[in-house]
Design a protein around this nucleic acid. Structure first.
Length: 566
RNA sequence: GCGCCCGUAGCUCAGCUGGAUAGAGCGCUUGCCUCCGGAGCAAGAGGUCACAGGUUCGAAUCCUGUCGGGCGCACCA
């Protein structure tokens, strides 16, 4: 579709002497005005004429543009693409490219590293972890579409003093819980019990600290073995949820993975001459980077490292290993300061590649009763949420489509799809208050609505095949004149993918897909596809197939299944 | 106290990076299944775009301030 915009720009540039790239082409307020609009206001100053006069004059003087007509309306020039040419261009491109439509090769040879999901070992995954996982996976797929080499890294939280406590708790009460079969719930129970009993038992506190010291010392004994076991048990549980979400990672690396590089990292920063000792801790002062910014702590008074130290080590390693063009951290907005500090340290070291590191932040998820808190029991567990959504889908299928084959599989796809779609619907920086009714709603602007639209299009195509329609031959594109808005929408998909990737904003795709479905539904209730008029039916079938391709493509970026029946 | 994020219909959100009469969904009111799937479609009611200034030919969009909500601010992650 871009060829029309390029032609319009070229004609405008020739007529006004302006640089084509500076010309802004937009969509008219009302589609009946035209397909593309050019506001003449910016030319008023240089030409010293009123915008409506410029528009009228340009409409006269503009050279002929193939397949495009021009009309001046007030201060705007409105352009209309010939309906047949529009359909041939858009549907033709989708037919030719199939699932690849919307992508490009702009990222060829470039690497983007994406840090996503990053749950903590020994803690249950709750709805809060969903956001990083789902947003991150969608962002990765967006960059995949644009031809980038992407590296998705799940940065598991498997290090820190709480693991010493857990080892101590397992040593004492491990026999009381079912670690093998219910590892997460068992570990959570042990963690809570530790915090309760430690109040009256100083020895327990010391046992926890001693265990972490042994872990940090690198000694390969009982403590490390226990830590390894609980890590493996947790990961096994996480993998079940990742499988349901259809999320995979290129690397799963815990913080412990970077442990051998901590000393070298600190040395590197010290060698840059930007460290100082303050109140016994080794810090990097950042007050010169940003006003009032808190310093970054590299080593505590006792010499052990912190979260920031480990993140810096990970960042250096990623830069060395992948030589990334961009490194994205899909992490909640509550850590904005942390990432500004990391970048601040790199900036003070004179490393210009800090500009390629981006914190893809997202809003906090809260429950109506307040912030999520595992220890206070204010949580919604992810597996429970997905189960409920699947059950709801099952119930609706039993009611609306009891004959459906593979009902169980499809209920899972619809249920999980509803949850994922809901999470990707709004702009990621916005805070979310979790609402069961909202997540489990399958009507209106929801994942199931999109899936349903897709399934109906698939159903029409099935019926067309059964009736022997053939869309391979010549198509009279002018017969799609009544679908111009739909065609324009389909033609915008590549721009949406590029923009969503640039902003790391999957919601742009979600919103687009919803609009496309609304338009599609509206169109096909008015226009019957399978008719006695073979030429008309053939043309409409190509449109249905194109829309189905794009809806499925959008859903696949979001990580939502597109079943052919539901 | 300081810093960052958010504020658009009763509720949940879009608004294409400054353009024409601010759009959807939910909820409410009302129509539409002898016709490709009613998880749908069509229509109605519902707005001082938090407030006040400013920049501009033009502001929901950019700047400043105020108010409201959220998050964070040295040895946790």
């Amino acid at each position: 579709m871009n060829e029309f915009i390029d032609r319009i720009k070229a004609a405008l540039a020739a007529a006004t002497g302006a640089d084509p790239v500076t010309l802004k082409i937009e969509a008219p307020r009302d589609p009946s005005l035209g397909d593309f609009a050019f506001p003449c206001f910016p030319l008023a100053k240089t030409l010293r004429k009123a915008p409506p006069a410029i528009a009228a004059e340009l409409a006269q003087n503009l050279g002929a543009i193939p397949d495009v007509s021009v009309e001046a309306t007030g201060p705007y020039l409105n352009f209309r693409v010939d309906r047949g040419a529009l359909a041939a261009s858009v549907v033709g491109a989708i037919q030719a490219q199939g699932d690849a439509y919307g992508g490009s090769d702009e990222g060829r040879g470039k690497t983007v590293v994406i840090d996503l999901s990053s749950p903590n070992i020994a803690k249950p995954m709750h709805v809060g972890h969903l956001r990083s996982t789902i947003i991150g996976a969608a962002v990765q797929r967006l960059f995949d579409r644009l031809g980038y080499t992407t590296v998705g890294i799940n940065h598991i939280g498997d290090w820190g003093s709480q693991f010493g406590k857990l080892v101590a708790a397992i040593d004492r009460w491990g026999a009381d819980v079912d670690l093998e079969n219910e590892p997460i719930r068992a570990l959570l129970a042990l963690y809570v019990r530790f915090h309760e009993e430690v109040k009256n038992d100083p020895e327990l506190e010391e046992a926890g600290k001693a265990a972490f010291r042994e872990l940090e010392s690198g000694e390969d004994g009982h403590v490390r073995a226990t830590w390894k076991r609980l890590t493996e048990l947790s990961l096994r549980e996480f993998d079940k949820i990742y499988a349901r979400l259809g999320v995979t990672f290129d690397h799963v690396r815990g913080e412990a993975y970077y442990e051998p590089y901590l000393d070298a990292t600190v040395e590197r920063i010290v060698a840059a001459g930007i460290t100082e000792v303050s109140e016994g801790a080794l810090i990097v002062d950042l007050s010169g980077v940003e006003k009032n910014m808190a310093p970054c702590l590299l080593r505590k008074t006792d010499g052990t490292t912190l979260y920031a130290t480990r993140d810096l080590a990970a960042l250096f390693m990623r830069q060395d290993e992948f030589e990334f063009d961009r490194c994205l951290y899909v992490v909640g907005g509550e850590q904005r300061l942390h990432f500004r500090q990391l970048k601040g340290v790199l900036a003070r070291m004179g490393l210009d590649w800090q500009e390629r590191v981006t914190h893809v932040d997202f809003g906090l998820l809260r429950l109506p009763e307040g912030k999520l808190s595992t220890r206070e029991g204010k949580v919604v567990f992810l597996d429970e949420l997905l189960d409920k959504a699947r059950n709801e889908a099952e119930r609706i299928i039993a009611e609306k489509n009891p004959e459906l084959a593979n009902a169980e599989t499809i209920a899972e796809q619809v249920g999980v799809g509803a949850v994922v779609f809901h999470d990707l619907k709004k702009e990621r920086v916005k805070d979310v208050v979790f609402d069961w009714n909202e997540v489990l709603s399958f009507e209106g602007e929801t994942g199931p609505y999109v899936q349903y639209t897709h399934a109906r299009l698939a159903s029409i195509l099935r019926k067309a095949r059964a009736k022997g329609f053939d869309t391979e031959g010549e198509v009279d594109w002018s017969l799609l004149a009544d679908a111009a808005e739909l065609l324009l929408r389909l033609g915008r998909f590549p721009g949406i993918v590029a923009s969503a990737a640039e902003h790391a904003e999957p919601s742009e795709v979600t919103v687009y897909v919803l609009e496309l479905c609304r338009e599609m539904n509206s169109w096909y209730v008015k226009n019957k596809v399978l008719t006695d008029d073979v030429a008309l039916s053939t043309a409409r079938l190509t449109l249905v197939a194109a829309a189905q391709t794009v809806i499925a493509s959008g859903l696949s970026i979001l990580g939502v299944a597109a079943p052919a029946e539901m």
